[in-house]
Simulated scan of single mutants.
Amino acid sequence: MGTTMLARLNHDHKHIAILLNILKVKHNRLAQGEAVNFNLIRDVVEYMQSYAEHSHHPLEDIIYSYYLKKTAETGTEKLADQHQGLIDASASLMASLNLILSDVVVSKEQLVLDLKAYVILQEDHMLFEERDIFPRWAEVIDQTDWQEIRALCSLKLIDDPLFSDNDNVLFEELRDYITKDE
């Protein structure tokens, strides 16, 4: 049971990594003054907002607080702080992209910096979880715990709108791009 929860989180990370690689490619093109598809970039950020921030991160927060209760550890706020930081970064990037897509002039230099910072923030965060947080959970949380956690998480467990078999048209262009790209 637990392995499936952790497997799901790790699985999400692999998918997020694919999207971050797309952002890196777009970032490099922008930095070189080439034209990029801003709709595609916005779709990636929108995915991060609609899935990572509404399902993936909340699951991690729920599991972490369960873990802290169980171990009576005084946890740092690092995980929650990082999640909040990512929400802020996505929102700010989304605001810039929406301006660009509404033909408002936005500093390309700033966008290049913001994109780079966003990717680094996301990657550092996943690395922190994979190296530091997930292994601790795997050690301490047993099958019974995972069943309780699953019940606590049920409200936040949504289908991945991009990397699943459902016919979600929301990210159609992005899905096509990833499929062609691979």
Rank of each mutant, 00 (worst) to 15 (best):
K70V: 06
A52V: 06
E73W: 07
E73M: 15
H54E: 14
V105W: 09
L113P: 03
L86F: 11
D81S: 15
K116P: 08
Q49C: 06
A117W: 12
S96M: 12
I41K: 01
A35F: 15
L40S: 07
L68H: 06
I62N: 04
K116I: 11
I100D: 02
D61M: 10
L115S: 00
Y67W: 09
K69T: 08
D43H: 05
P58M: 08
H54I: 03
M48R: 08
D61K: 00
A117M: 15
A52K: 00
S90H: 08
L40H: 02
L68C: 12
V45E: 03
L101A: 02
Y118Q: 03
Y64N: 10
E77F: 12
N98T: 05
V36Q: 07
V36H: 02
E109M: 15
P58H: 10
N39P: 09
Q49D: 08
Y118A: 07
L79E: 02
V44L: 04
I100C: 01
S92E: 13
A117V: 15
G85A: 10
Y66H: 01
V112S: 07
A89D: 07
T76Y: 07
I62Y: 06
K78F: 15
V105Q: 12
L40W: 04
L99M: 14
Q82I: 09
P58I: 04
H83C: 06
M94R: 12
Q49Y: 05
A35K: 15
K70D: 03
I62K: 03
E46N: 11
Q49W: 04
N98G: 01
S50F: 01
D81M: 13
Y66E: 02
L113G: 14
D103R: 06
I63F: 10
M94L: 13
V44I: 14
G75E: 02
E60F: 06
I87E: 12
L101D: 00
A91K: 13
K116Y: 15
T76G: 12
L97I: 02
G75K: 06
L68Q: 13
K78W: 13
